[in-house]
Amino acid sequence: MKILICESNPLLVQLMGKELMSEQNEVRLAWVSEEMASQLTSFAPDILITEVLLPHMNGFEFIHNARLQFPKMTIVVISSLSSNRLIELIFRLGADEFISKPLDPTQLNNHIQKAIRGKRNSFISNAIDYVTKI
């Protein structure tokens, strides 16, 4: 599994990186805004973990573009946002899971598993929908 973590606080990025590092995961980190966009295209991760309140960059645009570029990617947003309107917007733009900050890094793996399961389920149900339509 290829994971890309984008967040403007370098310490938090590294922490999450350590948390997710394991044999089956390949983790990359980005905490400078230019790097985030370039890493996204070159690395093509299976899972994108990102903040949306980024300095010098529009995080909403970023997840939107990521979703357009990689329809199958799992997008997990971690953010200190707590406005329902904006969280809704995030989901509409294509996020699969939202974790509010402050977050418990030890729970990160569970959240991601949940997001992947959710994604797969919705994929299966979509497939069933598709089949039944036929």
Partner: peptide
């Protein structure tokens, strides 16, 4: 402090 503000839990 900047890290502490972002996390909860055992860490």
């Amino acid at each position: 402090i900047s890290l502490r503000k972002q996390i909860t839990g055992p860490k």
